[in-house]
């Protein structure tokens, strides 16, 4: 990972936060743009979940990550704390792989 691209990403992230308050004054985003902004994270997160559970590189793959995601889903549904969800998923995958 190069420092240049990492710092560029930090700069872009900051610019996104700062551009509104610094330029727009008291105006607010409304309408379609607001709705799209509110929802943009949803398909991205869903894609990250599924792609990172079901693929290795450019291939679809079924392995221990799928039951791990199932365990995570149950814990999220039961409103378990973030760390419990993440550690349980890792432990499930690790245990299944250790068992072969």
């Amino acid at each position: 990972m190069s420092w240049t691209s990492l710092l560029a990403l930090c700069a872009v992230s900051y610019a996104l936060k700062a551009v509104g308050p610094l330029l727009a004054g008291g105006r607010e985003i409304r309408g379609h743009a607001r709705a799209a902004l509110d929802l943009v994270a949803v398909p991205l997160l869903a894609a990250l979940i599924l792609v990172q559970s079901l693929s290795s590189g450019q291939h679809l793959a079924a392995d221990a990550r799928i039951p791990a995601l199932g365990v995570a889903a149950i814990l999220v549904w039961r409103r378990a704390p973030f760390l419990v969800v993440v550690l349980a998923a890792a432990a499930t995958a690790a245990a299944l792989r250790a068992l072969g």
């Binding site: 997160l45 990250l48 791990a68 998923a89």
Partner: peptide
């Protein structure tokens, strides 16, 4: 397996 779990949460 931690990434998908984190994104799900």
């Amino acid at each position: 397996a931690m990434f998908p779990a984190a994104f799900l949460a």
